Simulated assay, not measured.
Amino acid sequence: MPGITREEVAHLGRLSRLELKDEELDHFAEQLDAIIGAVARVSEVAGEDVPPTSHPLPLTNVMRPDQVRPSLTPEQALSSAPAQEQQRFKVPQILGED
């Protein structure tokens, strides 16, 4: 597999709107080549019989089920609000929308 060239790194830099120095082009070319090689090795290992996964171990939900419990009434919740309207907290408009 041919390595990534300085010109390709410079092109990526232009696309990213990054100004790269000459020594950075060489340095990034080596690093990108190593990354591409590592990805290629992973692709070789992943076989047809291995399903794609996002996590190596199964995930389980550790949250408890919802339980109805006593809570504040709307009047209690709004009792210290600086402004309220239609049983809701009234806040200043921030997006300039109606």
Rank of each mutant, 00 (worst) to 15 (best):
M1H: 07
M1S: 09
G3D: 13
R6F: 03
E7I: 07
E8M: 11
E8D: 13
E8S: 08
V9E: 04
H11S: 09
L12M: 06
R14Y: 00
S16H: 02
R17Y: 04
R17D: 06
R17N: 10
L18N: 02
L18Y: 05
E19P: 01
L20E: 03
K21P: 00
K21M: 03
D22S: 13
D22I: 08
E23W: 14
L25M: 01
L25E: 00
L25W: 00
L25Q: 00
D26R: 07
D26T: 12
F28W: 15
A29K: 05
E30G: 08
Q31G: 08
L32M: 13
L32N: 02
D33P: 00
A34Y: 06
I35W: 06
G37I: 02
A38W: 08
A38Y: 13
V39I: 15
V39Y: 10
R41F: 15
S43M: 06
E44F: 13
V45F: 02
V45D: 03
V45W: 02
G47W: 10
G47V: 09
G47F: 14
D49W: 04
D49A: 10
V50W: 11
P51L: 15
P51F: 07
T53S: 09
S54V: 07
H55V: 06
H55Q: 11
H55W: 09
P56Q: 11
P56T: 12
L57R: 05
T60S: 15
T60Y: 11
N61T: 06
N61W: 13
N61M: 10
V62N: 12
M63F: 12
R64Q: 12
P65N: 06
P65A: 08
V68C: 02
R69M: 10
P70Q: 02
P70A: 07
P70W: 01
T73C: 05
P74C: 10
E75G: 02
A77N: 04
L78C: 05
S79Y: 07
A81L: 02
A83L: 14
A83H: 14
E85L: 10
Q87G: 09
R88V: 14
R88I: 05
F89V: 15
V91D: 01
Q93S: 08
Q93A: 07
I94F: 03
L95V: 13
L95C: 09
L95A: 10
G96R: 07
E97D: 14
D98Y: 06
D98H: 09
